[in-house]
Design a protein around this nucleic acid. Structure first.
Lengths: 143, 143
DNA sequence: AATATTTATTTGTATATACAATATTTATTT
DNA sequence: AAATAAATATTGTATATACAAATAAATATT
């Protein structure tokens, strides 16, 4: 183990997970003022922006499985940050007074996150990397 | 929600997590012949290559927290795929007969993973992306 | 030498995520 | 119209990961 670099640094599984963990930690920090972890913050933002969005739409928007979204919504509903309304086989999700009030804090957290990333990677590098990662995620998830 | 693209695609937290989930699923599939999930496979490979490696060295090698590595080692020891030996305040980790025998299957899984990634992204794109992600992960985790 | 500090690891507990199985509702086919 | 299939969401259960606290050992300080 003399090398500073991991022998796995050539592996996309390894690297992408390492980056995701780091980013998650940073995002948790940035959304802390809203007392929400990142995924919850994203759900609240999406619902605020799109009242009545379906649970399944949230799942594909966030690239999460339906069951994961259900779990997120459960917790958010407990905290009165969303309201679920069953309609046939679908579930519509609505903002609440509290979630609307929280929206600015969440957006500020999001901006703070962006700022911190750019501070480390630079604007250009950051944008390019993000775009590349997003495209790859799309392609690879199509299998 | 007319857009195909998520409004979050510009966010590195979002994109990197999406990619990590996809990659994890793919890696799970590739390591399935060894009956190991990816992180466990990486630990076994590292220990086989580096008998007597410290628990903490594994942690920094894999960019995981020490506690996470302890948990991985617990499970692997139950399955007789590593042996832990306490020495002072450190813990040395050794391969077992079974883990050595499994090594080829694991490496094949790893190669299969690489092949699948390249099949989707192409060789060049894949290498560049991985390198970029790894560098970013390093920089960002230094905070 | 005795005490305090630092280092390495392990536990207790919590969380985000997913898969497989199960409703429930809508659409399709016979 | 009845039967079958497809779509949507929810549950039961499992897993990887981390944080904070606890332990234990090595080092430094008084």
């Amino acid at each position: 183990m003399k090398d500073k670099e991991s022998p796995y640094c050539k592996c996309l599984y390894y690297s992408s997970n390492a980056l995701a963990r780091t980013m998650t930690k940073m995002a948790e920090d940035c959304f802390a003022p809203a007392s929400l972890s990142p995924s919850y913050a994203f759900v609240v933002m999406s619902v605020n922006k799109n009242p009545g969005i379906l649970s399944g739409e949230l799942a594909s928007l966030m690239m999460l499985t339906p069951s994961t979204v259900t779990r997120l919504l459960e917790k958010l509903e407990e905290r009165d940050l969303v309201k679920r309304v069953s309609e046939g086989r679908t579930t519509l999700v609505f903002p609440t007074r509290a979630s609307v009030e929280l929206n600015d804090v969440i957006i500020q957290g999001w901006q703070e996150l962006y700022k911190r990333i750019v501070a480390v990677l630079g604007n250009d590098e950051s944008e390019k990397l993000t775009a590349g990662i997003y495209k790859a995620a799309l392609k690879l998830s199509e299998k």
